[in-house]
Amino acid sequence: MSRFQLPGNPSSLSSVAAKDEPLRALGLDRNGRERVVVGVADLAVSKDATKSIVTYALGSCIGVTVYDPVAKVGGMLHFMLPESTVSPEKAAVNPAMFGDLGIPLLFHKVIEAGARRERLIVCAAGGAEVLADDGHFRIGNRNRTILRKIFWKQNLLLAAEDTGGQHSRTMSLKLADGSIQIRAQGKDASLWPR
């Protein structure tokens, strides 16, 4: 089991993307295609090695991937805001919206699906910032901070990250080998393996 303490009401946590869960368990997206698409404020876990998990348009939001290369189980979270305290009622309905609840939930779900914590390769992308934000909002930056804070507390290391800047990114995780591609500014690049 995860060593994370899951904050909030445990019954609400299982409700994440509940309507898509039967499909996702089969490794299918809504249309039964090879790709599992993670929307904004959403997460998905799969152990189907024929599939990829993908999320589009990461701006200030952050995409977090976890992958166990032995069990070939992986997951992805696309969180939007750092802390659930700004909107506890929204957090109760959808914890994947917030980094502080979504990150522990992602680990919980992937371990539940058969991954082992000590084998997990963890990567992150996104956390861009609007221009000339004079330190008032800095949502991208604060999203990166919450990620580091949780990882530091839990003694986890980020294997690779592509964060910051002002551009939007698409992130995909191939479940066959755990490789991660980032598409940004019209170019594809491998985030993992480096």
Binding site: M80, V130, D133, Q166, S168
Partner: peptide, 25 residues
């Protein structure tokens, strides 16, 4: 417009290359 962008809406190759005006804030 900035709120929409933070919600991940309408992000193309222009990304977040738009300032939030401090005077408006």
């Amino acid at each position: 417009d900035c709120v929409a962008r933070w919600a991940g809406l309408g992000l193309g190759c222009d990304g977040l290359l738009y300032p939030f005006n401090a005077e408006v804030r």
